[in-house]
């Protein structure tokens, strides 16, 4: 049994499609030819990326090194002192017969430091507690 479409298919196959123009060949040559020239951009990119990575590593090491050697450059930006809490006690007689009044004074010192390079802050809180004996004169 013969295929009735066979002759028509043969006739179709005899048609010659128009080939792509020279511009297509030129673009294909650019993409597919000259592996040496194609390696150029790859090498350039690789070298560039390697240099960039090396720069990052160097910067990291440099900054890290500097961070270890140099002390933080903190600057005093604020200092506060709380009101003193003064407590007076009853006068007491010492062994030599003189009289003194015990006084206890308590206050807090708070200082705030900042390092603008690293944007870090240091808050130093120091409570103070002092005890003194105030001599009393007796007539």
């Amino acid at each position: 049994m013969t295929d009735p479409d066979h002759d028509l298919e043969q006739a179709l196959a005899a048609l010659r499609p128009r080939p792509p123009g020279p511009a297509v060949l030129a673009r294909l040559a650019r993409d597919l030819d000259a592996p040496v020239s194609a390696r150029g951009p790859i090498i350039a990119w690789s070298a560039g990326l390697s240099a960039l990575a090396a720069a990052f590593v160097a910067a990291f090491l440099f900054l890290g090194f500097r961070g270890e050697v140099e002390a933080p450059a903190y600057q005093l930006v604020r200092a506060d002192q709380s009101p003193a809490d003064v407590q007076f006690y009853r006068p007491v007689r010492l062994a030599d017969g003189s009289f003194v009044r015990p006084v206890r004074v308590r206050w807090d010192d708070t200082t705030r430091w900042e390092d603008p390079r690293s944007n870090t802050r240091l808050i130093n809180y120091r409570p103070n507690d002092q005890f003194a004996l105030l001599p009393l004169e007796t007539n």
């Binding site: 010659r16 499609p17 128009r18 080939p19 792509p20 297509v24 060949l25 294909l28």
Partner: peptide, 9 residues
Amino acid sequence: FAENGARLR
């Protein structure tokens, strides 16, 4: 491509 380009197109 010389052999097949026209058909591909």
